[in-house]
């Protein structure tokens, strides 16, 4: 599964992995804004930015082909709009849509595959994002795997019971069966949540999550942010001045 692979990638030990989550988040935001607002000389700029991201992937010791493929998940959505733009006689706009959405996704991929999600969320919390929201996101991420597995069992059971899905135009019985299956999945998820809460209380939970890690924003992180700013913004200024 996608998130399991990312989880493994994110626990590497490269210099990029070791940077503070805040530093990487800021760098990615700068990148996204510089890319998103670009208009002139888009093609050379996007090639240059692709180079920067590829260098980051290699520096982080991640498999580059797999990473490039993973970021392509945005392309089906983008392709529809790009095709419309092409048909409307705007090839540059089509290229910009494809380039911007792909490079943006790749940049986010580099961020999450060099930063374990809990660390990333911790960084966001220290940047002022509401803690409650981040805790919900953390539990969501943790239980994605457990609940998805149950859903897969249910899907298999449904298919075994109802055979193929091609018979009638509107099968109320099958529709209802799928509804009931989801009702049961809902009830089970609810029971999981209660069980988790009991287990938390049993281990002395008093309403606040305390964590072991307390990574500090060091000099190397400040340097990293500065370097990212100079490279990303400088590259764009240079490309636009030349072309």
């Amino acid at each position: 599964m996608h998130h399991v692979v990312l989880d493994r990638w994110s626990r590497g030990g490269s210099a990029l992995h070791r940077r503070d989550a805040r530093a990487k988040t800021i760098a990615v935001l700068v990148f996204l804004i510089a890319l998103g607002t670009a208009q002139r000389a888009f093609l050379p700029l996007s090639l240059f930015y692709l180079g920067i991201l590829a260098a980051a992937i290699l520096a982080a010791g991640l498999p580059i082909v797999a990473a490039l493929k993973r970021a392509a998940v945005v392309l089906p959505f983008t392709a529809v709009f790009a095709a419309i733009s092409l048909a409307a006689g705007e090839p540059m706009r089509a290229a910009a849509l494809v380039g911007k959405s792909y490079l943006s996704a790749l940049a986010v991929l580099v961020l999450v595959s060099t930063t374990p999600l809990p660390e990333l969320l911790g960084g966001l919390e220290r940047m002022g994002v509401p803690r409650y929201l981040l805790m919900v996101a953390q539990f969501l991420y943790r239980y994605l795997f457990v609940i998805s597995e149950e859903a897969q069992h249910m899907r298999a059971a449904l298919q075994a019971k109802s055979g193929t899905l091609k018979r009638t135009l509107w099968d109320r019985a099958k529709f209802g069966a799928a509804g009931r299956a989801l009702g049961v999945l809902f009830a089970r998820s609810y029971a999981h949540a209660e069980g988790i809460h009991q287990a938390m209380l049993a281990r002395g939970f008093q309403g606040h999550f305390l964590t072991l890690s307390g990574r500090a924003f060091g000099r190397a992180d400040a340097f990293f942010v500065a370097a990212a700013l100079v490279i990303v913004v400088g590259a764009r200024a240079a490309v636009e001045a030349w072309i």
């Binding site: 539990f139 969501l140 457990v146 609940i147 249910m154 899905l165 135009l169 799928a178 998820s189 949540a193």
Partner: peptide, 27 residues
């Protein structure tokens, strides 16, 4: 405050729910 896990698990439920397909007919 205790319901934080509930909200998180319900989020996971919505993700998982999207795996279960509802037959609409015509394949």
């Amino acid at each position: 405050q205790s319901k934080v896990p509930l909200l998180g698990v319900m989020g996971a439920f919505v993700f998982a729910a999207q795996m279960i397909n509802f037959p609409v007919g015509m394949g």
